[in-house]
Amino acid sequence: MQLSIALIVLVLSLIVFSIFYRGLPSLTWEMVSQTPKGGYYFGKEGGVLNAIIGSLYLAFGATILALVMGLPVAMLMNIHLRKFKKLVNGVRFLLDLLWGVPSIVYGAFGFSVMIFFGVKTSLLAGIITVSLFILPIMIRAIDEVVRNVPVGLLEASMSLGSNKSQTAFMVYVRQCSSAIVTAIMISFGRAIGDAASVLFTTGYTDSIPTSVMQPSATLPLSIFFQLSSPIQEVQNRAYASAAILTIIILIISVLSRVISNKYNKNKIS
C-alpha cells in the first residue's frame, strides 16, 4: 500500500522531471520572445510567443466569460432558490453530468454551430467554446463552498435591509472570496491546457491575434504540431514548449494555494 503512494509521487516527479530534462536545454529566451519566422517549422529561428500569447488570451477570455456567467448562477442557486431544494439539486446533478462531457464533444459541437452560422475559426469562437466547457467546473467549485455558508449570515444581511442580490454580491462574495479565486484558478488551468476543444474552433496561426475575430495559436496545439515534425530541432522545441506550459500550470497551482490561504484569514466561520 505504501508502494502505491510511492508510485503516485514517483510518477508525478517523473513527469515533471522528464519534461524539464528534455525541454529546458532547448528553452532559450528566443523561444518565449519571438513569433515563428519563415521556415520555423524546418528548424529555422523563431519562438512560440504567438502560442503563449494566444493561450493566455484564450484562457483569460474564457475564464472571465465563465465567471460572469457562473458566479450569478452559483449565487442564485444558493440564495434566491434556497427554498427549492429539489430544483437546485437537479441543477447540481446536471452540472456534474456536464462536467464529465469530454472536451472534444464541445469542440465538435462548437464547430458544427460555427458552420451553421458561417463563422470562421477565431479567438472568439474558441473563447465561447472553452468557457462553456469550464462553466460547470467553475459553478460547482463556487457552489460547493457557498452552500456551506451559515444561514445566519444571510439572515443578518437581510435583517439589515439589503435585498437578496446585495447579499449575494456584497456579503457572500466577500465571505467566499478564497473559494472563488480557487475556482478561477482551476478553470484557468483547464482552459489553458485543453487542446481538444480549441482544435476545431480556434484554428492556428503564426502571428499574434490583434482582434477576437482572428484565429489564434494555442500552446497545446503548438506542442502537438511541433512534435509531429520529423526534424529533431523542431521536436526539441516542442519539449521546450511543453516545459513552458508545465511552468505556467505549476505557477497557477502554487499561486492558487497562496491566494486561498491569504484570503482565508479574513473570513468569519
Binding site: I15, I19, G193, D194, I223, Y239, A242, I249
Partner: peptide
C-alpha cells in the same frame, strides 16, 4: 497531477 494538461501527459 489533476491540473496537468493532457498534452503534457502525451509528451511524457
Amino acid at each position: 497531477l489533476a491540473g496537468i494538461p493532457s498534452i503534457i501527459f502525451g509528451v511524457w
